[in-house]
């Protein structure tokens, strides 16, 4: 669906993108993450056809969008980071303006507008002027506009940043719904929790380049720490502690009363052995957790 090859963009002497390579497959939700100012919005604006680029290739649906005539406005829906609308219009008028600009008939505009307002839960506020909308409402209206053409590809630039928790949940729910409809979504954000919830793959942009691109589940698995945090029902006696510590695959054991942190070698092979050993030495267990790295921790490790 999207193929970015060696994409370069400079603003004067300032190099923003220095050979970005990324690929987004059809029906995939791709999380595009990076620090503020890493070049996420620049990449999004290039993909939306709003700005040009210096070198490289940007292919959307098989078409190189370097040429303006090749930009497929009907196939791409774009939500800017801070969507701006005409404040004197209401949502109904704005969507009608968009529909009419795209050349739909009155009947189509009526149906589409109603459907979009319903999807983003703005039907009740449809006749209020946009100038009086909250940031979350504007964001939802932006998604409705981006979805108006029923595009195959959606470019969402920081859709949930600067929103309150309720607004964020609403936006993430809308994205999940669009994902279930089979839309391809290129999602830029620095709220990594959202990425974990909706994305299939993730690309990390750092210093103008993609430094990591991977399936999110594989990525989380790869960065799993080989540590079990175990809480026992009561204190562990000396003998039980010795058996655990002396197992050849146990690297380190930290005990704090009834709690233990156990590091093991060769995690994939030995994790079942450890669980069996705990069962064999007959210590009642209250909880056992594999310590996971959050995407935030992975991101920080990768960009360091």
């Amino acid at each position: 669906m999207i193929k970015i090859e060696n994409l370069t963009k400079n603003y004067g002497r300032h190099k923003v993108l220095m050979g970005v390579n990324a690929e987004v497959k059809e029906g995939e939700v791709y999380g595009f993450i990076g620090h503020n100012g890493a070049g996420k919005s620049t990449t999004m604006n290039i993909l939306a056809g709003l700005i040009g680029f210096d070198k490289g290739k940007c292919i959307i649906n098989g078409r190189n969008i370097q040429s303006k005539s090749n930009r497929a406005n009907n196939e791409v829906g774009y939500l800017p980071e801070d969507p701006k609308f005409y404040p004197y219009m209401n949502a109904l008028e704005y969507l009608e303006f968009i529909g009419s600009m795209k050349g739909y008939t009155k009947k189509q505009i009526g149906e589409k507008t109603e459907k979009m307002l319903d999807m983003v839960k703005l039907s009740k506020a449809a006749k209020r002027v946009i100038g009086g909308y909250s940031r979350g409402m504007k964001q939802r209206l932006g998604i409705a506009v981006a979805m108006y053409n029923d595009p195959e590809l959606l470019l969402l630039d920081e859709p949930s940043s600067a929103l309150d928790p309720e607004g964020r949940i609403d936006v993430v729910e809308i994205i999940s719904k669009l994902k279930s409809q089979g839309k391809t979504i290129f999602l830029s954000t620095h709220i990594l929790n959202d990425i974990e919830r909706v994305c299939d793959r993730v690309g990390i942009l750092n210093n103008g380049q993609i430094v990591l691109e991977e399936n999110i589940h594989q990525l989380m698995k790869r960065y799993i720490q080989p540590v079990y945090d175990i809480e026992f029902d009561g204190a562990v006696n000396e003998e039980q502690f010795r058996i655990l510590r002396e197992a050849d695959y146990v690297e380190k054991v930290n005990f704090d009363g009834s709690k233990a942190d156990i590091w093991i070698r060769n995690f994939e092979q030995n994790s079942t052995k450890l669980l069996k050993l705990i069962s064999d030495i007959n210590i009642p267990v209250i909880s056992i957790n594999l310590r996971k790295n959050s995407l935030e921790e992975i991101f920080l490790k990768v960009v360091k």
Binding site: A48, G49, L50, N73, N74, V76, Y78, P80, D82, P83, K84, F85, Y86, I98, M101, K102, G142, V145, Y148, N149
Partner: peptide, 13 residues
């Protein structure tokens, strides 16, 4: 300056 044209232009205005 208000960037009100960003969305219409992205949609082929």
């Amino acid at each position: 300056s208000d960037k009100t044209l960003t969305i219409p232009v992205s949609m082929g205005c």
